[in-house]
């Protein structure tokens, strides 16, 4: 069965699409790949030269690590896969902050050492320096994946459900299903109960229980999935999907070559 993709909504950071012709295992592999395996850049180590702010070094380092950075992951390699021993321009980059209060330091105040890296959101407050307080630090940015730490996770929201199909086999237009449905799947038009947008159905079965005639049937398509995906701006939603599918394909090719080696 051919795989079909129907995009319902696509913005820079959000995607909602139906993918059909997949097994549940493949859909889950795609979900896990988008969450865990697509690499991205994030601050991994921070060298503090001076910090007289109200935040401890560790708190500041954690805040810096969680700032989403926008960069093309194809330009860098993972630290473990790099041939260098103590960091090179291929596996790491730097960012620095040098400030003296009174000033509020935002993510846009990070001075990047590499022009290919930028912050996804400029208005994330890092620390508020009061009069006389100083902050001088140098952060090291590294490539990583979501399975190492959540700061390297590209998809902040990624989930799917089987496409539900709601049908009415018997109806006396009592309207109870319209009242109980939390997702507004049913609608009442001129006194007649009709099915609206059944893709919103969460399969809670409240309508089935409410119907006295047992006239509502909810089924799920086992091979069609509604994906919802949201990124933090480090990568666009469409780029993330394409990257994840490519990674899955490369993994499948590697697995095939290994299996062929064993079969000979």
């Amino acid at each position: 069965m051919a795989i079909e993709i129907n995009v319902i909504e696509l913005t820079e950071r959000y995607a909602k699409f139906i993918i059909s012709g997949l097994t549940p295992a493949s859909a889950n592999a795609l979900r896990r790949c988008m969450i865990n395996e697509v690499p991205r850049m994030a601050i991994d180590e921070v060298n503090f030269y001076e910090n007289t702010s109200v935040l401890f070094d560790e708190q500041l380092a954690l805040r810096l690590g969680l700032i989403p950075l926008r960069a093309d992951p194809g330009l860098y390699v993972l630290e473990d896969e790099c041939t260098c021993e103590d960091g090179c321009s291929l596996c790491q980059s730097t960012a620095s902050i040098s400030a003296e209060g009174p000033i509020k330091i935002y993510s846009s105040d990070l001075v990047m050492g590499d022009e290919n890296i930028s912050v996804a959101d400029d208005n994330i407050l890092i620390v508020d320096l009061k009069d006389g307080q100083k902050l001088l630090l140098n952060a090291i940015i590294k490539l990583g994946t979501g399975e190492m730490h959540a700061k390297w996770q590209n998809a902040v929201v990624c989930g799917y459900k089987n496409i539900p199909h709601v049908s009415i086999t018997d109806c006396n237009d009592c309207g109870r299903c319209v009242d109980v449905c939390p997702r507004d799947v049913f609608k009442c038009v001129d006194g007649r109960v009709m099915i609206g947008d059944d893709i919103n159905c969460s399969c809670c079965n409240l309508c089935v229980e409410a119907c006295e005639l047992d006239g509502i049937v909810i089924e799920e398509d086992p091979e069609a999935f509604l994906f919802k995906l949201e990124t933090d701006g480090g990568m666009t939603a469409s780029a993330l999907i394409v990257y994840a599918v490519r990674m899955l394909r490369d993994k499948a090719v590697r697995l095939k070559s290994v299996l062929e080696r064993f079969s000979h």
Binding site: A42, I43, D44, E45, V46, N47, F48, Y49, E50, N51, T52, D57, E58, A61, L62, L64, G65, A139, H149, K151
Partner: peptide
């Protein structure tokens, strides 16, 4: 007093 040496902290 804070030591004058550089302090390296993991961001996690």
């Amino acid at each position: 007093q804070r030591p004058t040496m550089v302090k390296t902290v993991k961001a996690e």
